[in-house]
Simulated scan of single mutants.
Amino acid sequence: MWDWRGQSAAAFRGNVDAFPHWFEAYLARHHVTDILLFGDNRPLHRHAIHVAKQHEVAVFVVEEGLLRPNFVSLERGGTNYASPLPRDLDRLRQIVAHHDPDEPVTAIASEVKRRVVEAVRYYIAQTLTKPLFLNYRSHRQNAPLREAIAWVRRRINRRAEDAASAAAVADVRAGRFFLFPMQLDGDHQIDAHSDFPDMASALDCAFASFSAFAPEEVMLLVKMHPFDPDIDGWRACVAKKAARFGIGPRVRFIERFDLGILLESAAGVVTINSTVGPLALEKGCPVFCLGRAVYDIPGITAQCSLGDFWMAPPVVHAANFDLMCRAMRATALVNGGFHDDEALRLLVDSAVRRLAISDRLGLHVDG
Rank of each mutant, 00 (worst) to 15 (best):
F12Y: 14
R13L: 03
P20W: 03
P20T: 00
H21I: 06
H21K: 14
A28H: 07
R29H: 02
R29C: 02
R29F: 00
H30C: 04
V32L: 06
D34N: 13
L36D: 13
L36N: 12
G39D: 08
D40G: 03
N41F: 04
R42K: 12
I49Y: 01
I49K: 12
K53F: 01
Q54H: 12
V57L: 04
V62H: 09
E63H: 01
E64L: 06
E64S: 10
G65N: 08
G77Q: 03
P86G: 03
D90T: 13
V96M: 01
D102Q: 15
T106P: 02
T106R: 13
R114Q: 14
V117E: 14
V117L: 14
A119W: 13
R121D: 09
Y123W: 10
Y123S: 11
P131G: 09
L132N: 12
L134G: 10
H139A: 14
L145N: 09
L145T: 10
E147Y: 04
R154C: 01
R155L: 11
I156K: 06
R158K: 08
A160M: 11
E161K: 01
E161W: 03
V169L: 06
R176I: 03
L184C: 06
Q189E: 08
S194Q: 06
F196G: 02
F196P: 04
M199L: 07
A206E: 10
S209P: 01
F210W: 13
P215M: 00
P215I: 00
V218T: 12
L221N: 09
P226L: 00
F227T: 10
D228F: 01
K240F: 06
E255W: 10
F257W: 15
F257H: 15
L259N: 15
V269Q: 13
V269W: 11
N273E: 05
L279D: 15
G284Q: 15
C285H: 09
P286W: 08
F288M: 09
D296G: 04
A302G: 07
M311H: 15
A312W: 00
A312T: 11
H317I: 11
L323Y: 07
M324I: 03
V334E: 05
V334L: 06
G337D: 01
G337S: 06
H339I: 02
A343H: 08
L344E: 13
L344S: 08
R345K: 14
R345M: 10
L347E: 00
R353W: 01
R354M: 06
G362A: 02
V365W: 04
